[in-house]
């Protein structure tokens, strides 16, 4: 039997498979977001009584009851959940329990600050990680390959808070060149951007290297070189485009985490971004804000994944059949 998916015939035969594929992907994406909303709701609502946390313990019972009523906390959970879902469908993400402002506004205010860190960091990752990975793969086992690999392993094993604090210790405390925290000028962004970028670049370099090596080792590359093409040409026209395909995945993940990828680093550098807001909101049990951030993160992630998925399908026809089997 040829290596194809065998399922009982009743699954039907779609005529417009392309549209079907996109529709299934979209549905899956929406399902994921619904899952996140549910997750957030369940975790946040069932975990404790926010009224007891927001109000002081010795607040009068009438005040607590009034607080609950005004936030709908006295209704059955099921009703709360449906209302919540309905509200989200209308674009209403609730208000912060702390200062009563719209959660979405509160979060939106912080997005530029976070992007000011994550976008330059992403450029560093791409600008250093991919060339370093390709270079290491092309010069396998040379000293530069070993250097890249060592740096890559270090990038994985050194947590961002350690790297960030080390940078602060060296460049802010010892040398006094750069500020250690805050958001007053562009100079304040340098250390956090480096902290974010270096780790990601290492991960990307390692990934790119093995993707390239894998492609280089494959048979059709050898076939191409046997046809008399120069090695450099083979690398440019065959190896790199093919190696790019799996790399798209990890880059997609990085793009997806532009908004939430800086939680720890923002905390280290007291940077007033979304991540910082999340940590504070979590500590304060500010339900609406946490849910809003979760949803935002999920939506970004899911969108990035969707784009990657579609890109994948178009970049590599070989994978279409293989992937469709699991996509179901």
């Amino acid at each position: 039997m040829p290596p194809t998916d065998r399922t009982p015939v009743s699954t039907g035969k779609g005529r417009r498979d392309m549209i079907r594929f996109i529709a299934i992907r979209l549905l899956r994406s929406l399902l994921t977001i619904a899952l996140v909303v549910t997750f957030a709701f369940v975790v946040l609502r069932l975990s404790g009584d926010p009224a007891m946390l927001i109000m002081s313990v010795d607040a009068p019972p009438e005040a607590i009851a009034a607080f609950r009523r005004s936030w709908g906390l006295d209704e059955p959970l099921w009703t709360q959940y449906l209302k919540y879902f309905g509200a989200i469908l209308h674009g209403d993400l609730g208000r912060s329990m702390r200062d009563g402002r719209d959660a979405i506004v509160l979060v939106a205010e912080r997005i530029p600050a976070t992007l000011a860190l994550t976008i330059p960091a992403l450029l560093i990752k791409l600008g250093i990680g991919i060339p370093a990975g390709v270079h290491a793969a092309l010069h396998r086992d040379s000293w530069s390959d070993r250097l890249v690999m060592l740096a890559a392993v270090a990038g994985f094993t050194v947590p961002s808070f350690v790297l960030g604090l080390l940078l602060v210790l060296i460049f802010a405390v010892q040398l006094g060149w750069l500020p250690s925290g805050g958001q007053e000028s562009w100079r304040h962004a340098i250390l956090p951007v480096i902290t974010l970028g270096v780790g990601g670049a290492a991960v990307l370099a390692r990934f790119t290297r093995s993707a390239t090596l894998e492609v280089l080792g494959q048979l059709y590359i050898r076939t191409a070189s046997a046809k008399g093409l120069s090695w450099g040409r083979v690398v440019r026209s065959h190896a790199l485009p093919n190696a790019a395909i799996p790399t798209v995945t990890i880059v997609g993940f990085m793009v997806g985490s532009l908004i939430a990828g800086a939680v720890v680093v923002e905390s280290v550098f007291s940077w007033p971004g979304v991540g910082r807001l999340l940590v504070v909101a979590v500590a304060n049990r500010d339900l609406a804000v946490v849910q809003c951030i979760l949803l935002l993160v999920a939506a970004t992630m899911v969108t990035a994944n969707l784009i990657v998925d579609l890109l994948y399908g178009f970049l590599d026809p070989r994978l279409r059949s293989a992937r469709s089997a699991g996509a179901g």
């Binding site: 290596p3 798209v248 059949s321 293989a322 992937r323 469709s324 089997a325 699991g326």
Partner: peptide, 13 residues
Amino acid sequence: PEAPLPVPSPPPA
């Protein structure tokens, strides 16, 4: 996806 298929890399999701 399906185990017997040659899948060169993990799915992007």
